[in-house]
Simulated assay, not measured.
Amino acid sequence: MTRISIQRVYAAAAPGEGVRILVDRLWPRGLSKDKAAVRHWLREVAPSDALRHWFAHDPARWDEFQQRYFAELDAQPEVVRELRSVLAGHPHVTLLYAAKDEAHNNAVALLSYLRRHGTAA
């Protein structure tokens, strides 16, 4: 099973963190592709624009955001399959996100989803 870490995309790549996968729908502001050191950008696995705007990084909406996001993922099995395919090819990956909130972002929710479905260690 793949070991998955989470890190803000603006943090420098560190040795041993595995393959870096950006899981945001939009490219992070002010960050060059070289500096980001992203191997895969899976924008389709990110929450929809409508869900992102509704959530607006409001911690009071976190539980509902996760439920809605998980429903979006369940409705897109091909997107989840693509993510699992990328994960299966690497012993360790780091999911990258741009949000400032380290506890309430789509990468945290995505890791929870993957753990619930037996995909992540």
Results as ranks from 00 to 15, higher is better:
Ile4Asn: 02
Gln7Trp: 03
Arg8Val: 05
Arg8Asn: 13
Tyr10Glu: 04
Tyr10Gly: 01
Ala11Gln: 12
Ala13Leu: 03
Pro15Ile: 07
Pro15Gly: 10
Glu17Trp: 01
Gly18Cys: 11
Gly18Tyr: 06
Arg20His: 07
Arg20Thr: 06
Leu22Gln: 09
Arg25Gly: 07
Leu26Ile: 12
Leu26Gln: 14
Arg29Ile: 01
Ser32Pro: 03
Lys33Gly: 11
Lys33Phe: 10
Lys35Gln: 13
Ala37His: 11
His40Ala: 08
Val45Thr: 10
Ala46Ile: 05
Pro47Glu: 08
Asp49Tyr: 02
Arg52Trp: 10
Arg52Thr: 06
His53Cys: 09
Phe55Val: 05
Pro59His: 09
Ala60Glu: 14
Ala60Tyr: 00
Arg61Gln: 10
Asp63Glu: 15
Asp63Phe: 00
Phe65Tyr: 09
Arg68Cys: 05
Tyr69Ser: 04
Tyr69Cys: 02
Asp74Ile: 06
Pro77Ile: 08
Val79Ile: 14
Val79Met: 03
Val79Gln: 02
Val80Tyr: 01
Arg84Asp: 07
Val86Gln: 10
Ala88Ile: 03
His92Pro: 06
Leu95Asn: 02
Leu95Phe: 10
Leu96Val: 11
Leu96Arg: 06
Ala98Cys: 08
Lys100Glu: 10
Asn106Thr: 02
Val108Met: 13
Leu111Gln: 11
Tyr113Trp: 10
Tyr113Gln: 04
Tyr113Ser: 06
Leu114Tyr: 12
Arg115Lys: 15
Arg116Pro: 00
His117Glu: 09
His117Tyr: 07
Thr119Pro: 00
Ala121Asn: 06
